[in-house]
Structure formats: structure tokens, C-alpha cells
Design a protein around this nucleic acid. Structure first.
Lengths: 266, 266
DNA sequence: ACCTGAACACCGTTCAAGT
DNA sequence: ACCTGAACACCGTTCAAGT
């Protein structure tokens, strides 16, 4: 049976072998993989493809890398290196907004990276550098302790979540255009009319947005979320505390007392 | 060549054939797929597996469904039906928080659904119902027009982003435990010591969090983000306007004038 | 030490042929 | 109309054998 469960531990913990007779290196492998991913996505990338682009056989890649997953993990960190952010920006909001926008731009250039970014924690050097930058800006904003982590995670998750949705829509529209399907198709309109009847607010929004604009609205939406999030961070930074996070939550919400469903392993 | 690009249009736009001699239905197919997905994830699900669980041949599934992707799209909507939310909750914050928490709980029960939820826009009936609920709560909060959409998207993206990160961590820890790898392994500590030297804030956080607790912190983090987001929404609902979204952004940030990188198709 | 070439054990999807 | 069974064109990964 093919053991494709990704390796125990991360590539970053396994050193590249010291050279001798090599024709290859991890760097070259990543260098071959990234353009293929950019052009054809995950579907276009196979070990055989990387190998043939490098003039070798698929099997030989396994001398440098343990699984295909390793290749993707390395490729992710390479493109994370393209993100620009200034850890010393005195205005923390501006700094975080810059980090967020630069991350979004990178993810739109390398859509495949989204999957890698979300499938496992990220232990590459560039990932760490970006995390440090974010933490620096947020600690300047007044966050510390557990709240610092939580604030960082919140910003990161918002960016990732937003770009995921954006890319999903964009890809779908592209695919529909390519296959000649139109929103105005009979089945579609019939289905949507049905939906509209049951869901008035949804119907109003569907009527308002001309379909093509969906694409253009993405950036506006991203900025909205960013504004909202930074405003929220600014508002809560002194009220939410790492020591007793529920105190503030109670003020606003009634937290669900249910235990987290994942805690079945402890 | 195997055409695996997902179908033009969505399953929801193609009606199930009228019955005659059937042994199967879309419902049964989904009913077979979901438990497999829950137990073994995407890796465990194959068309052959579904078929054999139903006592038929793989090929016959294609009479009801056009691709494996169709099956997953249907399965997603089924589990979306498990999300509970009250559109008439008078306190919009409480209502949205409830929706968010119920969504998170569902996604933790059906981890595979995260991928489906993020890979394409969602056109199933349960997805629409949930969207309508969210819109209702947010319109009660004072949002309208384009801002209503943006606010809805912001909440959705935050939930999705947060749960993605949570699941990624959880899976990684589980995998490491299963394969007997420990955080205290030589290579690991050496690598992390190296990282710590270069990244002081990261180092401080790594020292603070005992590794096992990472898992338990997820819920706290989720609540933090939720609090922060609702606070941000409350603060911006009257200042950000659909008509001129940049006006408010300017007050806080300097938006990047760069065009969205996706607009290459218009 | 590094790479080849062939093999293994899978996939999703298609399609003639049966009933 | 619906299902079977076999085939097609792929995968990632392994591993003896070569150099």
C-alpha cells in the first residue's frame, strides 16, 4: 500500500545531504517546481514532470526529498520570501496592513501556495521571519502574552480566509467562461429564481451585483475586512487579557460552554 | 487524458434523473461518502470505495453524478445542514457568534468539509440558508448595500481561516504523536534554537506555550478573534460605506494603489 | 553516493456490452 | 434506463541494479 501520509516531522528538520557526485539539489528541485505550479497548479505538478524538466528520472528526486509533500513545503517557503513587510514601521496599523496586502498579492501570484499555507504549520525560515515581523508590529500596538499570539493569528487567518474566497470565486468564473457556460443559462436562472424566493436578502444582493464585478470587488472587500479588523484590534487591545480571556468575552457574548471537539486525544 | 477539471457549472444546476430501474440515488451516494470522509478523510474516499460500500460498480456512480467533485459538493451541503443558527436572535452579536461557533463545531466534526468549503463557491440550499441568516443578523446590525456583503464575507472568512489553522495544527500534532516523533528530538531543538536566536518575539512565545497546550488554546483564540471582529464591525458599521469605501480606509490606512492581480481576464 | 528503469499498487473516468 | 467489467492514462513511491 502506498504510504502517502506526509512524513513525520518537517523537511526543515532534515538536512540536505552533503554533496559529492550530485547533479541535483533541493534548490533546483524547488526551482523547477514553482514555475510548473504557477502555470498549471497542483494538477500540473508530478514528480515525473519535475524530473523530466531537470533531465533526470523521477526516482532520483527521492534522494533529495522524502515525499512530494516535501517539495511543496519547500516551494511554499520560497514564495513566502517574496512577501515584503517593514517590521520597523512606526504606525502599527499601516505596518500590518502592508504585511496583509503584500501577502495577498503574493498569494494571487502563486495561488497554489494557499493550499500549502493552510495544510500544515509552517516551519520554513521565511515563515518565521514574517511571523516575527507581525509580532513586532502587534507588540508595538500593545499586545503581549497570549493575546499577542491570538492577535497575530487573527490577522493571519483573516488574510488567508479572504484570499481563499477570492481565489475560489475567480477560478470558478474563469472556468465557467472557458467552458462557455453563462450565468444566464436556463437551469441556472431557474435555480436562482427559486433560491431568491426563499431568501430575500440574498436575492437583493444578487440583483445588486452585476456578475462580472464580483471579481473587481475582491480588493474592496479585502480592505473592508482589514479596516474592520484593525479597528477591532485597536478597540480590544487593552480589554482582552491573556490572563482571563473570558472576562471580556462575557461582556459581549455568551461563550458556548461545550468542550472543543478535538480534545479527544489528551 | 483524464479530464478532471471540475465540471462547468455546479451539481446544483443539473437535476437528478427521474427514476426508473434505479438501485441508487444521489442521496445514497452522499450517505455512503460522508462516513468514509469523516473516518478516513479525502485520502480514504474513492469512487471504487463508495461503489463497493453500496454494492455496485464504480462506473455506475457516473450515472448519477458527473465527477467525484460532484459527490464532494453534495456532501458539503449535507453537513452544512448541521449548522444551527437563529436568524431572529435580537442581539446580532450573539446571533453571529452562535453562527460562527456552530460552524466551527461542524467543521471540526467533518474536517474534510473545510477543503470543499474553500475550493469553490457554494451553491447548495443549506449554504444559501446560512448566508441568509448571516445577512439578516448583519442587516439588523446596521449594514446595508455592498457593506452588508463585505461584512458577511469578513465573518465567514475569519471563521474559515481560524478553523483551517486549528485543524492544520491538530493534524500535525496527531501525526507526530502517531509516528513517535517528539518536539524534543535533537534535530528539532537544534533547528528551533537557531530560529529563536534570530527571532526574539517568536522565541519568547515558543518558550511560553507548552507544546501540548497548543491544542487547547484553539478555542480561546477563536473567541479572541470573534470578539475582536464583532467589536470592529460595531465600530465601523456607520463609518464605512458601500458608496465610498476608500474614504474610511484613508482615515486608517494608506491603501496600496496597485491593481488587483487577478484582473487579467477583463 | 547518486541515478536509472522497471515495477507495484493505486487513482478517476470512459465505454462497449449486457439486461 | 441503468449497471457491469474491462480498459486507458495516469499517479507517488520503492528498489534492485548499475556507475
Amino acid at each position: 500500500m502506498p504510504v502517502s501520509a506526509s512524513s513525520d516531522g518537517s523537511v526543515w528538520l532534515r538536512h540536505e545531504r552533503p554533496p559529492r557526485d550530485r547533479q541535483l539539489s533541493r534548490d533546483q528541485i524547488v526551482g523547477a517546481a514553482v514555475p510548473v505550479l504557477d502555470a498549471e497548479g497542483h494538477r500540473g505538478l508530478s514528480m515525473r514532470r519535475i524530473a523530466s524538466d531537470l533531465g533526470v528520472t523521477a526516482g532520483s528526486l527521492y534522494w533529495y526529498v522524502r515525499t512530494k509533500d516535501d517539495v511543496l513545503e519547500l516551494a511554499l517557503d520560497r514564495v513566502l520570501g517574496e512577501v515584503r513587510a517593514d517590521p520597523d514601521e512606526p504606525n502599527w496599523r499601516r505596518g500590518l496592513a502592508g504585511l496583509a496586502r503584500s501577502t495577498r498579492a503574493m498569494l494571487l501570484r502563486h495561488r497554489w501556495a494557499l493550499r500549502e499555507l493552510t495544510i500544515r504549520p509552517n516551519l520554513g525560515p521565511n515563515a518565521f521571519t514574517l511571523a516575527e515581523t507581525g509580532l513586532r508590529l502587534l507588540s508595538r500596538a500593545g499586545f503581549a502574552g497570549a493575546d499577542l499570539d491570538a492577535a497575530m493569528a487573527t490577522v493571519h487567518d483573516q488574510v488567508v480566509g479572504a484570499v481563499i474566497a477570492e481565489v475560489a470565486w475567480h477560478d470558478t468564473l474563469t472556468r465557467m467562461r472557458e467552458s462557455g457556460v453563462e450565468w444566464s443559462e436556463h437551469a441556472t436562472t431557474a435555480y436562482l429564481r427559486d433560491v431568491a424566493e426563499r431568501h430575500p436578502l440574498l436575492a437583493r444582493r444578487m440583483a445588486a451585483g452585476r456578475k462580472i464585478e464580483v471579481e473587481r470587488d475582491s480588493e474592496r472587500r479585502f480592505e473592508f475586512a482589514l479596516t474592520c479588523l484593525l479597528e477591532g484590534l485597536a478597540a480590544t487591545r487593552h480589554t482582552v487579557t491573556g490572563a482571563d480571556p473570558t472576562a471580556n468575552a462575557d461582556r459581549l457574548l455568551t461563550p458556548d460552554p461545550r468542550r472543543p471537539l478535538t480534545a479527544d486525544a489528551g
